[in-house]
């Protein structure tokens, strides 16, 4: 169960970035001009257990910001998010992957970053490698991997995470058709086991085929909430 209560997020973007001391000293008496950007504006919704929620909307409408606030990476300017259950702490695949480490080392590092314990990873190591289809490349450094292998590895680790709420930002944009198929098989299993999934995507087909519900964000506001096909239709009409 996720409750998003009246979330507003305002980014204060300095118009000139004063990173250095010189800039800070020279411009000391000139106030920094901030541009206030309202990324989210009073967003309210709830996600029940077992729902597969798709979040859609044009670029810059606040989708990723919303997801980051739900994950606890960003603080909202006002409003609260309350979550019952264990939430996956990541938004993207392969966070913390280092190309100079081997696949084995990356599996351990990434798995631990995502909240698994070392013992759990050891137990599931073979199935992770098998799912990614990378048995022969376990001790190869990641820099020698193709981008497809990279993504497969990242996904195989990510699906091991013991969370009953999963947040995913554009994870489908990178893989090929076969990989996406695999992703949705996993999502189906998640759905069956009663896990909640929140997916940010531009793939309208995926939203219509797999999501049980969709919301459409426009300029940081909730423009439409409901059946995926209705929301997608509304969105496409709205944009054109």
């Amino acid at each position: 169960m996720i409750r998003v209560n009246n979330i507003t997020k305002i980014f204060k973007i300095p118009q000139e970035n004063r990173y250095t001391l010189k800039e800070n000293l020279v411009n000391f008496f000139r106030p920094v001009r901030y541009e206030l950007i309202k990324a989210l504006d009073g967003v309210n919704f709830q996600v029940g257990q077992g729902e597969f929620l798709g979040i859609i909307g044009p670029n810059g409408c606040g989708k990723s910001t919303l997801l980051k606030i739900m994950a606890g990476i960003l603080l909202p300017t006002s409003g609260q998010v309350s979550i019952d259950g264990k939430i996956s702490p990541f938004l993207e695949l392969g966070v913390g992957f280092n190309v100079d480490l081997t696949a084995r080392e990356n599996i351990y590092q990434n798995g631990i970053i995502l909240g698994l314990s070392k013992a759990e990873i050891r137990k599931r190591f073979d199935s992770i490698v098998q799912f990614a289809g990378l048995e022969k490349f376990v001790d190869m450094r990641l820099k020698n991997f193709s981008s497809g292998m990279h993504v497969r590895l990242a996904f195989s680790v990510a699906i091991q995470v013991d969370a009953n709420i999963l947040l995913m930002d554009e994870v489908l944009a990178v893989g090929d058709a076969h990989f996406q198929q695999k992703c949705f098989q996993v999502f189906d299993e998640y759905k069956k086991s009663g896990k909640t999934i929140v997916l940010v995507t531009h793939d309208m087909g995926a939203v219509q085929n797999y999501c049980t519900r969709a919301i459409y964000l426009r300029h940081g506001q909730l423009a439409k909430d409901g059946q995926p096909s209705a929301v997608v239709e509304f969105y496409l009409k709205d944009v054109v």
């Binding site: 979550i83 019952d84 314990s117």
Partner: peptide, 26 residues
């Protein structure tokens, strides 16, 4: 606000993993 309760043990594992890998990479 958010429940990311992880055990101290997990944070220790994460810290050790990052430290050891950085050492290796160096």
């Amino acid at each position: 606000m958010l429940k990311h309760k992880q055990s101290l043990r997990h944070y220790w594992e994460l810290m050790r993993e990052l430290a050891v890998n950085d050492f290796k990479l160096k």
